[in-house]
Design a binder for these strands. Structure first.
Lengths: 334, 334
DNA sequence: CAAATGTAGCGAAACGGTTAGCTGAGCGCC
DNA sequence: GGCGCTCAGCTAACCGTTTCGCTACATTTG
């Protein structure tokens, strides 16, 4: 490996001069400059980022730990985060917490060991895991998508209640009263919030879902499939379902299809989030959507602000609002 | 930040002893060991990975550069790669080449600058970009999904011809003769191979697609949508389409839907690759599938082998075979 | 008891950069 | 002509580890 010393020797200058030329950090006379540049290209020299990192105490790395990399929702976040990071000159190291607090602990250890300059985390565990000390000190954290009970943490989240409320209200407007729900884990802000929103919407009309019509489970396609299958085979099955996220909606649709039911004729389905780009496939899901790209961009911007030390305010929270997108997975009640 | 020197001072030993305790790299007497461990936990000391990296010349980082992070196919690769890397003790830095050779050049520069120990790349440009020298010397590269014309490079790819051939043969078996195609860019091994496979299948029955029925374009949903829309509005539109990948198939379905056509009644669609997990939505795509997880795992294994210097053989190529998965997006010709 | 052997732990030199601070040449001014 | 100023470029310290080679002490051997 060629080092800055090799270049210095070849050009007949000191390493300080080579460094100055490379970083344009000081004036170097034109002829020395030329000699250095020639030596650099002759030797195909590339400065070691690792050595720079050690000197500067930075790594130019941003960690992105998402709850479930297999979920297209988080895949989009990875996409958006990479783009934003590249714009700021950072690279993104991805981690998968796999919806498992223990796995997440390991992830946090790895993030610290790598010395990432900052982290965007979709939290899976409790608040204590993300606060100061667990990650590298001086390396800021922004929570994305879910919130935990710690106002000191920067958080970019979504209005889950509003999402549940709007989707449910849409079903109510169509005349449905026996509405069931397939929700996420209720200890997560996303699961709890969306379900609470649903309850609020129904309450506002003097209704409440039958306990038999509400199932909660992991945010996964296969989990939703099996609970939906179970739910839909009840003799008193609901006429409409509110499903808590995109992959669960897909699982629900698969269950409906496998049971020989039709959507929306036999059962209406509304959800929060869908799978991007499947608009041409029937039925098109009626759902609330979150601006994933903007949210991720905002989280990255908050993180960069912190890393640069620009902001000193205590934890800021930005909440994005969902939008209702009407497809054709819902029909008026018969 | 607490350093190894702080710990050494607190424990009344030398830094060498602290290092020996931490890495268990030499015998240290029990009482010194205890003193060191106490100091470590008192000071909440965590060794700087950056300094270790400099010393060892490694970073424990694997770069993963995919062609298009917005494409769920590559999102799955990210998922699989992260899981494999974690198993081997590495972390994954993701990059998006965005199907753009210029962007990819920049990505390769960033990979080199970070000093990644190895790279898995879904190539977007020409062979010259990936060979020795462009990336850090001694840092191996494995090409994934697509191949370029350089037998010296380790490559994990798929049998694109077979994919195109099998999907097309299925349509032919249903009696279709006027088969059109929406293909990817023909300068990429994936685009070219799949199209060639289609041609081979038709040729074997003495047929050939009408040039008017073949459209090529970027592997993107919106591109496929517009070319499909155009193609399907021709008075002599084909009775079946072979579409070159998953997101293009979605775009095609959206075009079919928007034009008021029905699939499979009005037009049959077969593709290579689909979007994972959308099995419950109608129509279910008939397509060939590649074992993405296994492929990615294999690529990672080849990379780790190289990084450990276990294998010295020149470029190895592993080709995976597609499987035909029959859905209900194809009907016999009327 | 002196010499030889073994070894726990230490000091200091790397790793490859950056940068503070110094040197000394060139120049203007009194 | 001497003084001081400017500033291009150099020397060397430093970032936080690991590790080679050494010291000094304890133990065994003749």
């Amino acid at each position: 490996m060629t080092t800055i010393r090799d270049v210095a020797k070849a050009a007949g200058v000191s390493t300080a001069t080579v460094s100055a030329v490379i970083n344009e950090s000081a004036y170097v006379s034109p002829d020395l400059r030329q000699r250095v540049l020639k030596a650099v290209s002759d030797l195909r020299y590339a400065p070691s980022q690792v050595a720079r990192n050690l000197k500067h105490g930075r790594t130019q790395l941003i960690a992105l730990a998402v709850a479930d990399l297999a979920n297209p929702f988080y895949a989009r976040i990875v996409w958006a985060a990479e783009a934003a990071a590249a714009k700021w000159g950072y690279s993104v190291v991805v981690f998968n917490s796999d919806e498992n607090p223990d796995t997440e602990k390991g992830v946090i250890d790895r993030i610290r060991a790598l010395g990432c300059d900052g982290s965007v985390i979709v939290p899976v565990g409790g608040a204590e895991d993300y606060s100061a000390g667990r990650l590298r000190e001086g390396a800021p954290v922004v929570l994305l998508g879910r919130s935990v009970d710690d106002p000191g943490l920067d958080t970019v989240s979504i209005d889950n209640r509003s999402a549940g409320e709007r989707a449910t209200s849409y079903l109510l407007d169509l005349g449905h009263t026996r509405i069931g729900s397939i929700t996420g884990p209720l200890h997560l802000s996303t699961g709890r919030g969306r379900y609470d929103g649903m309850l609020m919407a129904m309450q506002a009309r003097g209704l409440a879902p039958s306990p038999d019509h509400v199932r909660s489970g992991a945010f996964r396609e296969d989990v939703a499939y099996s609970v939906a299958r179970d739910l839909l085979q009840r003799p008193d099955r609901p006429s409409a379902l509110y499903v808590a996220n995109g992959v669960m909606a897909l699982g629900t649709m698969r269950a409906i299809s496998d049971l020989g039911l039709r959507c929306p004729e036999d059962i209406s389905v509304a959800s929060t989030d869908n799978i991007a780009g499947i608009g041409g496939i029937k039925p098109r899901l009626t759902r609330t959507e979150h601006p994933v790209l903007e949210m991720t961009g905002e989280a990255m911007r908050m993180l960069v602000d912190r890393m640069r030390g620009t902001v000193e305010t205590p934890g800021r929270t930005v909440v994005f609002q969902p939008a209702l997108v009407v497809g054709d997975s819902c029909a008026p009640v018969r």
